[in-house]
Amino acid sequence: MVNIVVAVKHVPQQDNVRISKRTGKPLVDLAEGRMNPLGKKALETGLRLAQQDPNSEVTTLSLGPKEAEPTLRESLAMGADRALLVTDPLLEGSDGLGTAKALAAVVKQLGNVDIVLTGARTSDRYAGHVGPAMAAILGWEIATHGQSAKLTDEGIRFEKVLTSGTVATLTVDTPCLLSMGTHAPKPRHATTWGVHAAHETDALERWNLDDLGLAKDEVGPSAQATTQRSIEPVPEKERDTEAFTGDPDDVAESLPRRLASRGLLR
């Protein structure tokens, strides 16, 4: 039996974050939110892992306000067996570390978890550190930015696409945390039957801070490890594409000179 937990965040529908002029903080509209796209890919990966072993269980987990419910219901509709929403006013003021602590605490409380899956990053914060921090807190192995994961006798076979474009295959022992990146498979569509079943009143489990076994000063604003001074839009970079044509040998020979003349080589 494989016990899989997938952490999914409910994020705003729009990727381009608007910043409040008054507070300097991002304006977060969760009422029209959606499941973090890479979290959805992590869930798809979890559901595929579960298909390899009929006894496995997939639990989705989200830390967030009541508005996050649709994301968890969607996870049930897609095929998760259990969905757990952790809501606490104190957690809302947490940074990435606090979030990781709380999520790790849930995993400990659940017990016997073999694999935690997350998206490599969220579409609203883009920090990408919650997964790794969770693995560190749990003291588990970690593999990040995956394109696929499979159960094998040796452990989990994890594939990731490197920046060079080649695919690296890792074998990871359980318990472990795996984060899934953009190359992971396209998530399935929840079926109509799933949508209905996910809206049974008792389909969701709700937890708060008391259920986590964490002290109040371990999470929340007072426990922040990072301070956000300001958020500013990054000016768009100008991009240019140039193709050098001609005899390949000649082009290769002239390449250092041409790059240097454009200030790209020193």
Binding site: R34, P70, R73, A77, H189, A190, T192, V195, H199
Partner: peptide
């Protein structure tokens, strides 16, 4: 619309557009 109908519309729209 209820949450259920909202999710239904969203998944249905994605399914119809993508598949």
């Amino acid at each position: 619309f209820s949450d259920e109908h909202k999710l239904f519309r969203r998944t249905l729209r994605d399914f119809m557009d993508e598949e």
